[in-house]
Design a protein around this nucleic acid. Structure first.
Lengths: 190, 190
DNA sequence: GTCTATACGAGGATAGAC
DNA sequence: GTCTATCCTCGTATAGAC
């Protein structure tokens, strides 16, 4: 995949994370990349293919980021904090998680894109579950529920926090408050 | 507001709750209502007005439902259960909360619709907060956080649960598991 | 690889007859 | 109130020149 293709995906990603799948167009991309919209079809044959590749790249990058979080920090509690900060970062540009916003449009997504979205949630939940299990065994975290359930609740909550934060005037602080509580709910009470 | 207008809103509501704002069209409505799409403009001058009225009606109906929950049940814990079941019901037709799905498209909504969405969340959070306060004072509920924070976390979580449930093969049971944990997290442990 | 030109359909909206 | 007819814009996609 060449440079232009990457650039197209970069721009598309920002667009989708802001507006969603149905509301981004080749014209939008063309404007920001500086090529004509017909030229996009040289790199991606269709909107479906473009979005499929976008989700694929996003999933891989996200997994990489999670691995970095593991490496850079041995404390599960700090890892969790970093995980939450990823979502907070997106929000600072009023962007949702790519797969979170796509999930809202599930009914109109091409099947191949739906698949990628599903896979993203499964992967992320698995990572969270492992993190919680580790944290529980070392005492860094004190999950009140089985790690699997705790993970799915956490994932739902962070996605929901991002979702409704966009409907708030002060979206970042709205998210922060919720994120703090999520963290508190799973940390040992001194 | 006459019968046809109501019917248009009924159909529009199902469409939006499934596909979102950008992906529903006058053609879709016209097909299901059985009138031509130009005729819709007699009842609603524009898509913006239609959606604005839709959100307005949804908000009022939702508030009514919440009042009914209060009346039909004096136990805050049971009220909370009923609140969660509202979201579960939508999901059974793979529908999200109208304002939840609109929130994902916030960036492309007309300003007047954005306003309605914001108001919906504020109202709903207030109701939850009052419920939690009542429950805490009678001992029916045992919030771990200040009621206001507990309410916003709960709202975010239930919206998020609905959002990501759509990306799950078994969306209803995925939601149920999360809803049970939400309930457990706020109920007194015997 | 990128361009121009163009096809084709969909979407929202308006005018005017009935 | 609903219809037909029509307008205009935007969206994806293709063909073929450079």
């Amino acid at each position: 995949m060449n440079e232009t293709a990457q650039q197209i995906l970069d721009v598309a990603q920002n667009l989708v994370r802001n507006r969603g799948y149905s509301s981004f167009s080749f014209a939008d991309i063309s404007e920001q990349v500086g090529i004509r919209k017909a030229s996009i079809h040289y790199h991606f044959s269709s909107k479906e293919e473009l979005t499929r590749e976008l989700v694929k790249r996003y999933r891989m990058a996200f997994q990489q980021t999670l691995k970095q979080i593991e490496r850079s920090n041995s404390d599960p509690q700090a890892q969790l904090r970093q995980f939450l900060s990823l979502y907070r970062q997106g929000l600072s540009q009023s962007q949702m998680c790519l797969c979170g916003i796509l999930s809202a449009e599930m009914a109109v997504l091409p099947a191949s894109v739906q698949e990628g979205v599903r896979a993203f949630f499964a992967e992320t939940q698995t990572w969270l579950q492992t993190l919680i299990e580790t944290g529980a065994s070392t005492g860094c975290l004190q999950p009140r529920l089985p790690p699997k359930d705790e993970a799915s609740l956490l994932l739902a909550s962070v996605q929901g926090a991002q979702l409704i934060a966009r409907a708030s005037e002060a979206s970042e602080s709205a998210f922060d408050r919720i994120a703090d509580q999520l963290l508190a709910s799973i940390c040992p009470t001194p």
